[in-house]
Amino acid sequence: MGTSSTALDSPGDVTGERRHLTDLAYRLLGSVAEAEDAVQETYARWYALSPGRRGAVVNPAAWLTTVATRVCLDQLGSARARRERYVGEWIPEPLPDRTEWIGGRTADGPSDPADRITLDESVNMAFLVVLEAMTPAERVAFVLHDVFRYSFADIATMAGRTPAACRQLATSARRRLRAARTAPSRTPGQAALIRDFKEAWEAKDIDALVALLAPDATLVADGGGLVGAVLRPVEGAARIAEYLLFIATKAPALTLLQRTVNGTPGLVAQNGGRTVTVAAFDLSDDRVTRIWAVRNPEKLGAWQPGGHDGA
């Protein structure tokens, strides 16, 4: 694993740091919108410095990364409180592939977040979900060290902790990953399996769906209280297949599209040309083990025609 970082001892134009900062913020926050907000806040603080103070910063890239990390730490703390009040399950915001981007807009104008966020194994949905279970400090130490390859001495400066404490936090985070048995990677046969899953769902073939699901598979849906979605995980192949057929029967005009979701094959459900669900999958032994279905419209702006509005 490893998303290339901006070296702390190399100079650079601050505008050229935007992609690196957004890469970092998305992995720390699990939300494109929150990541963009964190990066905007980081630049706002930079430009709020007097010209003399900016000129005195020996390494602007390091300054920006440090500020972005601290902004994200603050957001993670408040996000944990918000998610305790969240209706149903919270799933990270799904990210489309650059070639499948439909439309988007930021404060700077039309924008493709896939051009700002590097798609690699560290944005795999299974990986991001485990990151959500970490404490903010664990998540920051782990992402900065294991994903972006910063030294613990550098992380200590950014996070306001000792190098030893940062090392312990990263070790604790790795234990969480091992306990979740999450090894983020691309599965060679995943595209074909997801295609078979899509066809079985469209055909309302419950036996085919059950055969494609692991017996102990889990489906988690995120409606955010804004649209209908199961509030608790659906467990077991038979129950998941029945739930999917219920959806197909309830929404006969639903169109399923195979798309890349967070760097791996997934499915997008559209109704009347609007994306209503984005589903990410995890596989094991050629069967689907987990499905994350994002239905919260506030998280689907990147998948809508006409703009990143989530409407």
Rank of each mutant, 00 (worst) to 15 (best):
R176I: 08
V147D: 10
A200H: 10
R181H: 14
L213E: 06
T171K: 06
L169M: 11
Q190N: 09
S172V: 07
V143D: 00
V227K: 08
L209S: 05
G160L: 02
G224A: 06
R186T: 05
R161C: 06
A203G: 13
G189K: 02
R186D: 01
M134I: 02
T135V: 04
D205C: 14
G224H: 04
V140N: 05
P215S: 08
T162D: 12
Y150G: 10
V147K: 00
G189M: 03
Q190A: 12
G160I: 04
A164H: 05
A192V: 11
P184A: 02
R174A: 11
D216W: 11
V227L: 13
V147A: 02
C166S: 03
A214F: 09
G224D: 03
A170L: 11
D205G: 15
R176D: 05
P188I: 10
A191E: 10
G189N: 13
L177Q: 02
Q168R: 04
P188Y: 06
P163K: 04
S172C: 01
R186E: 10
A211T: 13
V220N: 07
D205A: 15
A153Y: 02
P188D: 05
R178K: 02
G189Q: 13
M134D: 03
S185E: 08
A183F: 15
A173R: 06
V147E: 03
A164S: 12
Q190G: 01
Y150I: 01
R181P: 00
A211N: 14
A192L: 10
L219S: 05
T182V: 15
L177V: 11
D196S: 15
G224R: 06
D222G: 10
A164V: 11
A141M: 14
G160T: 07
F142M: 06
V147F: 00
D222S: 11
D146T: 13
W201G: 00
L193G: 02
V210F: 01
R149Y: 10
A173F: 14
T171I: 07
